[in-house]
Computed example of a mutant assay.
Amino acid sequence: MKFRIHHLAILSLSALLIAAGCGNNAVNSSTTTNASGAAEATALPESSKLNIKVSFYPIYEFTKNVAGDLADVEALIPAGIEPHDWEPTAKDMAEISDADMLIYNGAGMEGWVDQVLESVSGTPLITVEASKGLDIMEGTEEEEEEADHHHEEGEHVHEEGEHAHEEGEHAHEEHSHDHGGLDPHVWLNPTLAIQEVRNIEAALAAAAPEHAEDFKTNADAYVAKLEQLDQEFKDGLKDTKRKDFITQHAAFGYLAKQYGLTQVPIAGLSPEQEPSAANMSKIVEFAKEHKVKTIFFETLVSSSVADTIAKEIGAKAAVLNPIEGLTEEDRSQNLDYLGIMRQNLEALKSALNE
């Protein structure tokens, strides 16, 4: 029932948001897409400063580094909140409508974005999918099996009558954060992060062409840092004793592919997904056979699954951070995307050389 209320609330806001967006946005244009996938838009008035809303932390980091002081950039999802669990409120929807741009990762990461885009259709809001044009991978087999299982359960519940149908809608809400079978975690591969930065740069330059050179200068400087990060990963992981690592959340497929590693996930793409008993058994067997001494878990969600397996095989549990949001500890240490990625590199080097 909660899903129904939320869905109706979004739809009922549509007319209000369209009217508000037409009156308040600084950008007076519609958005199109060019051959490279970057957003095109009529230029802002020269005196305007871009008001940009972004979905979650990595996109904030990339956008802020490109925009510099030429835009007000704000993340919709607060620090410390798992982005798979977040949905926009009426206040968030109004803020999106008032913005000049909405930049999001895409590839199924933001399950709410289609509803938002439908609600603001017809407004001058420029929308930018940062992963546009990237080679997006399919989800893991475990994720697909779980999705099939939930689908079958939903069909069974639907057959049991109206009361069960409402429970099925609630179940649909609980599992509405899947990624449509796609792996959206492209930002964990520095070379793909570079492509996202370039897509963002192109969108900002299209919206404010008088600042295109500034955006390019900023993007070039940040891309140089990402290229250095990529080289550090190449150097640090090329000669490790082993090439496979076990992680609680299947977020590191792009990173593993880039550096010749094999990710062995306990569960699928959604961090709240519970692994099946069969998969837990397979992971334990694999860990014992390959003498795995570290089981990786992540920030923002419970480490209980990783802890259970680590205890059973006599291994330790350690953090491998998917950087889906900063924790209070991250913020207190002034960590950013680059700093956390370097922590991930050190964690991998340690585990792969045990």
Score class of each variant (00 low, 15 high):
residue 5 I to R: 07
residue 7 H to M: 08
residue 8 L to N: 11
residue 11 L to H: 13
residue 13 L to E: 11
residue 15 A to L: 13
residue 15 A to K: 15
residue 16 L to C: 13
residue 18 I to W: 06
residue 18 I to Q: 12
residue 19 A to G: 15
residue 20 A to Q: 12
residue 23 G to R: 12
residue 24 N to H: 14
residue 26 A to L: 10
residue 34 N to E: 01
residue 42 T to C: 09
residue 46 E to V: 13
residue 46 E to T: 12
residue 49 K to H: 07
residue 51 N to M: 05
residue 51 N to V: 12
residue 56 F to E: 04
residue 56 F to N: 05
residue 57 Y to V: 09
residue 59 I to D: 04
residue 59 I to P: 03
residue 69 D to R: 10
residue 73 V to W: 02
residue 75 A to G: 08
residue 83 P to T: 01
residue 88 P to N: 07
residue 89 T to N: 07
residue 90 A to V: 11
residue 93 M to V: 09
residue 95 E to D: 14
residue 97 S to H: 05
residue 104 Y to E: 04
residue 110 E to T: 02
residue 110 E to N: 03
residue 111 G to I: 13
residue 113 V to C: 04
residue 118 E to F: 14
residue 120 V to P: 08
residue 122 G to L: 03
residue 124 P to I: 02
residue 126 I to A: 08
residue 127 T to W: 00
residue 127 T to P: 02
residue 128 V to N: 07
residue 131 S to V: 00
residue 131 S to N: 02
residue 134 L to Y: 02
residue 135 D to Y: 05
residue 138 E to K: 11
residue 138 E to H: 14
residue 139 G to R: 00
residue 140 T to C: 13
residue 144 E to L: 12
residue 147 A to M: 14
residue 152 E to K: 15
residue 152 E to W: 08
residue 152 E to C: 10
residue 155 E to G: 12
residue 156 H to C: 09
residue 159 E to C: 10
residue 164 A to P: 02
residue 170 H to L: 13
residue 172 H to R: 14
residue 177 H to V: 05
residue 179 H to L: 00
residue 182 L to F: 08
residue 182 L to E: 13
residue 182 L to D: 10
residue 182 L to R: 15
residue 184 P to V: 00
residue 185 H to V: 08
residue 195 Q to L: 02
residue 198 R to H: 08
residue 199 N to S: 07
residue 200 I to G: 00
residue 201 E to N: 14
residue 209 P to T: 01
residue 211 H to L: 15
residue 212 A to K: 09
residue 215 F to C: 01
residue 217 T to N: 15
residue 219 A to F: 01
residue 225 K to P: 08
residue 229 L to V: 08
residue 233 F to A: 12
residue 239 D to T: 05
residue 245 F to L: 06
residue 249 H to R: 03
residue 252 F to W: 00
residue 253 G to N: 01
residue 254 Y to A: 03
residue 260 G to Q: 03
residue 262 T to Y: 12
residue 263 Q to K: 05
residue 268 G to K: 01
residue 271 P to L: 00
residue 277 A to R: 13
residue 279 N to K: 14
residue 281 S to H: 12
residue 283 I to D: 02
residue 284 V to Q: 13
residue 288 K to W: 14
residue 288 K to C: 11
residue 293 K to R: 09
residue 294 T to W: 10
residue 294 T to F: 10
residue 294 T to K: 11
residue 298 E to T: 05
residue 302 S to V: 03
residue 303 S to D: 15
residue 304 S to R: 14
residue 304 S to E: 15
residue 305 V to F: 10
residue 312 E to C: 08
residue 315 A to V: 07
residue 318 A to P: 02
residue 320 L to W: 04
residue 321 N to K: 02
residue 325 G to N: 01
residue 325 G to S: 10
residue 327 T to P: 03
residue 329 E to V: 08
residue 332 S to A: 14
residue 333 Q to K: 15
residue 334 N to K: 12
residue 340 I to A: 00
residue 344 N to P: 10
residue 345 L to S: 12
residue 345 L to H: 08
residue 348 L to T: 10
residue 348 L to C: 11
residue 353 N to W: 07
residue 354 E to C: 09
